[in-house]
Design a protein around this nucleic acid. Structure first.
Lengths: 230, 230
DNA sequence: ACATAGACTATTGTTGACAATCTACAGTTC
DNA sequence: GAACTGTAGATTGTCAACAATAGTCTATGT
């Protein structure tokens, strides 16, 4: 018996995961300041739940890396160092490069859906750039890259990237307005899309590397004015 | 006041993490059969703890992917499909390729420690091959690759790879003796080490790709005799 | 005045009991 | 005999109270 279309099981996912998703969104939106301790009891009552499920959710976020746990001390919001930023973008580069290769191994028609989705995101991005809604731009930026990786259909790659996306949003958030080149932003993503659509493997590869390198530069320069490159 | 050398805080890590590590090792060693339900109460008493901490540990393992959780049903040991195997090795390839590039961007002397460690692992592997201790061989195999990635020093990349390593061991376990070419095993890893030591970037790149491709072939062929390659 | 020892407080870690939900089996009806 | 409904058992999900730990503040002695 096939379930009627549009009818889905109520809350099929575990509660802890739902709470974790909610909390993650709060954190990447900056509801907590970096380094701040997360009080279990307070949060539990705020989210209308008990400490048990909440602790399970915190466990998840600790493993994802956006929270850090210290025994008998509690959990704290991750403080990002320049080292962290470099790490995050190095891994993002690796994942996106892999995604690019996987996508280009597929046929043109299989990539079409992804291209269409990316195109839509770029259009939305352009709109938000016109209004200078930074929060929305940051979200769409990550949405673009997440959609790109999702195109591979590799669930593990996608899961990994979602974690990286959350951390990236924290990076961007932690230094406020960190998009020094708004005008280039849309153009740069459009370029990635064009290269994918043109199936230009080495071009796309180079573009991804460049995109990540620039991001790290932008993010680290505002932190360490002269750049203490070890 | 710096803590005295060699003296470490008793159980500095959260309990849930310790339990998770213990459980992961049990699962990877095959103490549970794939698809089997994990009974919380039973496990809790076995591990001399309560259901609370145990559930937190299970959350961790669910997120890692070696357990799957169904609401109001419980958690079950992951059943690996051929699709899963392809996914896992695709991501492993991506991570190891990234690790290779990062390592080769370092200086020769920085890579030396990693090479030394890898050499030791290969030596141990050769010993276990002589005795045909499959469990030990599987462990050393993953230890080699984990050490390789650890050489990068990128904590995020390492964490990702540890999860993949656990899943890989489950792959190998689920089809019993899955090393059809014992003699080549040591040689193949030695080859990877030599290429790293020689700083042969493209050679190492190709070797990693080949290594992973062969692994997927070995693992999937025993499952689907004629290979239903979609 | 400074350092140290003690108690105090706030927060986490753990436990056991209670409630909600699902699967399986048995009984009933067509 | 087959299909459906209702009940029973087991297991997970949730909660609130208890215990333990780390950090802080104060008091005391040198």
């Amino acid at each position: 018996m096939a379930a009627p279309e549009g009818m889905f099981v109520l809350e099929g996912r575990p509660t802890a995961q739902l709470i974790a998703d909610q909390l993650r969104e709060l954190i990447v939106q900056g509801a907590f300041s970096p380094g701040q301790q997360v009080n279990e009891s307070a949060l539990a009552s705020q989210l209308k739940t008990s400490r048990g499920p909440l602790r399970e959710a915190l466990q998840r976020l600790c493993q994802e890396g956006i929270l850090v746990s210290k025994r008998n001390r509690g959990v704290f919001v991750l403080e990002l160092s320049t080292e962290d930023i470099k790490e995050i973008y190095a891994v993002r580069e690796a994942v996106e490069l892999a995604a690019a290769h996987i996508l280009l191994d597929y046929g043109q028609e299989q990539v079409a859906d992804t291209c269409r989705e990316l195109k839509g995101i770029i259009r939305d991005m352009a709109k938000q750039v016109a209004v200078s809604d930074w929060q929305a731009i940051a979200r769409l930026d990550m949405q673009f890259h997440t959609a790109f990786v999702s195109g591979t259909g590799n669930t593990r790659l996608i899961r990994i990237y979602e974690t990286l996306a959350a951390e990236s949003r924290m990076c961007i958030l932690s230094l406020e307005v960190a998009y020094p080149r708004i005008d280039v932003l849309v153009q740069e993503h459009q370029n990635l899309l064009d290269l994918l659509d043109a199936r230009d493997r080495s071009g796309l590869q180079q573009a991804i590397k460049g995109h990540m390198q620039k991001a790290v530069q932008d993010l680290t320069l505002t932190r360490e004015p002269s750049g203490i490159t070890a």
